[in-house]
Design a protein around this nucleic acid. Structure first.
Lengths: 342, 342
DNA sequence: CTGTGGCGTCGAATCGCTTCGACAAGCCGG
DNA sequence: CCGGCTTGTCGAAGCGATTCGACGCCACAG
């Protein structure tokens, strides 16, 4: 193993000087710096992470806590992990994956990471409105950042799509197209029940849209079980005041919904208009659906930035330029699934 | 911060004794062990990961290398990361995510992890038949394990679904149902071009099936761009010898395929039979498709086991009981998309 | 009563790095 | 020509764990 001593010997300087070149914590003259760099390259030296973190109390690692219950979250989770990993990498940080077992009520993995200094800061995914993990980390004095938007917005820095506004905007779009019988198909029941932030905020948006637009907005929970969803949609469209337009916050269900509508001879957008909220480009199998896309890249880099700031500045520096939470406004991508009602 | 000294003081023993209780590397008498355990719980002590890894040269971390190009891989990647994280956790290991930037030709992240001892072993995802990362890690003397099955099966321990047999089995199933004009819709062109192991092996399976079954098997690359796929399917089914049965190794495309078929008035399974290879339960939106599912859990635990074995035993111990690679036979889940030809 | 050998515990060295105080050399002004 | 300041480098201490040799103690045999 090649250590800092080897580099120092090769470059003809003291180990401390090599360290200064590496960390930049003291001035080093141009010639020595060059010599040290050359030695580093020649030997293929990389500082030992354990030693470095032991001495400097910085790991340059961000702990990433997956949702408490993660089944439906994994595909989107994959994207966020990738996005976060890239964004963190740009800032000189790595990502440590902490999976919480379903039976592990507390934040055991997180606590181990905090106490054992496996990471400098934690990022919480799939946050719930009242998420116990935030308080748990706070109690340990360990910095936390949230991917999502918890109820207490000052408890920790966070970044999220403005789901409430996204719901409002999608329903408003349908309203502007002339629709008056609107339905908001929410996230899956389990997410609503557990208080997942995006679920709750989407529903709030549906409520607010009803008030703002002055028309009723029906609300329906989605389901991962397509048979259940099928049944619910059947009941919905069989009713007297069947909606003429649908905003869907569960994009994975869109293909199933379209199939359901096709089966009952309903055409999109002729008979029913559709907007998807929180999807990805490929998510919908290339369907040209009018939609609001989840800004994975922007959320990821915002969270990475916040995490690094929190790691440096200690917990929650809300007024610092880099510590401010970020609420991302929804952007509508126009597709071919919205038309005036028949 | 609570250190091993604090625990030792509280328990009235020497730090080394605490260490022995923790690592189990020396006998400790029952009373002392109990006292130490009590002190640990009372103080909420967790050993400092950096210090531990510095001294013991074990990090208890598995580095996870995402595919070189990961766009289409992310949803399935999310599942594997989760599965691996759980399996690794059971063995006392954590997962460090290494993302390779598209422009980073070599295995820079991996090399950093290896040289800087960020991890004990690396797991390679989305492996290619001739994957440069395996050799790179070998050259560094760093243990590698592969999620997938590279061309050189002795280069590193690996675990994978038997994609070749999966392709054969799905085509055989269609043949047994009476179909003679078969088509194998492969993975996306990019994966084939880059030599992704599952793509190549799936195609080999299609070839072998043709030989074994004594009928021609047409082969078509899939595409992430549904317009392209649409066009290809159009050409396929417009041809004189249009297939009556389809085996699809790109499950994400299945909804789109069904839509395409529906549009042209082709009914499944009346006019065309369909088998999906490498899907997940929810992947197909609850569609009752006859399919071979990707055994994420089993692959994950196999790879985790191999990784830990490699971390302990040094590179590639193929004859050790825990070091043997695992080829998982495909299992067919019967659905409603296969019927005899018209 | 003393010699021998386990067993269990201790103290000290050490892993590779960062960081702080010290110091040598060069420069300038008085 | 010398005192004081800046600039650049060095040596040593120490982070928190593991690990090895040493050692005290007790039981038992001679």
């Amino acid at each position: 193993m090649v250590t800092i001593k080897d580099v120092a010997a090769t470059a003809g300087v003291a180990p401390s000087t090599v360290s200064y070149v590496l960390t930049g914590s003291r001035r080093v003259s141009e010639p020595t710096r060059t010599a040290v760099r050359a030695a580093i390259d020649a030997l293929g030296y990389h500082p030992n992470a354990g030693a470095r973190s032991l001495r400097s109390t910085r790991t340059h690692v961000i702990a990433l806590a997956l949702p408490l219950s993660s089944s439906g979250y994994l595909p989107v989770g994959g994207r966020f992990m990738h996005g976060l990993s890239l964004a963190a990498g740009d800032l000189g940080y790595d990502l440590l994956l902490l999976t919480v077992r379903e039976d592990d009520a507390g934040a055991h993995g997180l606590e181990r990471a905090a106490r054992g200094k496996l990471a400098d800061v934690a990022v919480i995914m799939g946050v719930e409105m009242e998420d116990p993990r935030i308080g748990a980390m706070d109690a340990l004095g360990f910095p936390v950042v949230v991917l999502g938007r918890p109820a207490d917005e000052d408890a920790a820095p966070w970044a999220d799509l403005d789901w409430e506004e996204a719901a409002v905007a999608s329903l408003r779009l349908l309203h502007e197209a002339g629709h008056r019988r609107l339905c908001f198909l929410s996230t899956v029941g389990k997410d609503i029940a557990s208080g997942r932030s995006y679920s709750v905020r989407g529903l709030r948006g549906a409520e607010r849209a009803a008030t703002e637009l002055g028309v009723p907005v029906r609300t329906l929970p989605s389901s991962e079980d397509s048979a259940v969803l099928h049944r619910r949609l059947g009941a919905l469209f069989d009713s007297d005041d069947a909606p003429t337009a649908l905003a869907v916050q569960h994009p994975a269900a869109v293909p199933g919904i379209l199939r359901h509508l096709a089966e009952r001879g309903t055409e999109v957008p002729r008979d029913v208009s559709l907007v998807a909220v929180g999807s990805f480009p490929e998510d919908l199998g290339g369907l040209d659906v009018t939609r609001i896309e989840l800004p994975v890249g922007r959320m990821s880099s915002a969270v990475a930035r916040l995490a690094v700031a929190a790691a440096h500045g200690g917990p929650a520096v809300h007024d610092a330029p880099d510590g401010r939470s970020e609420l991302i406004p929804p952007e509508i991508t126009r597709g071919g699934t919205v038309a005036p009602p028949a």
